[in-house]
Design a protein around this nucleic acid. Sequence first.
DNA 1: GCGCTGACTGTCA
DNA 2: ATGACAGCCAGCG
Length: 92
Amino acid sequence: MSEFATIVRSVVASIPAGSVMTYKEVAIAAGNPQAARAVANIMAANYDEAIPCHRVIRSKGGLGGYNRGGTSAKANILKGEGVVLYKQHVHF
DNA sequence: GCGCTGACTGTCA
DNA sequence: ATGACAGCCAGCG
């Protein structure tokens, strides 16, 4: 794996419960502000239980996707952690 | 090593 | 306010 992927995982794993980060923010934190797609790809292709991908959302507030139960499960988990959701979109 | 795909984003029409 | 287009990057066949 590349260093980028490692940093991305670390960043995502560092997101506290009740908080969320956008793919863009994660990409920036990983050192590549333009690599939002790559971040999403890493999440989708290399999911790990230690990596709370459900706390990573789209810049528009959409949940994006989830490879472990679907968007619905993702929304449910976020809501359970204290994130305010409104019809599957994060309420900033 | 090349080309396609995707849980994206921002801008233009 | 929607919809379409293009730019961007890493992973996989």
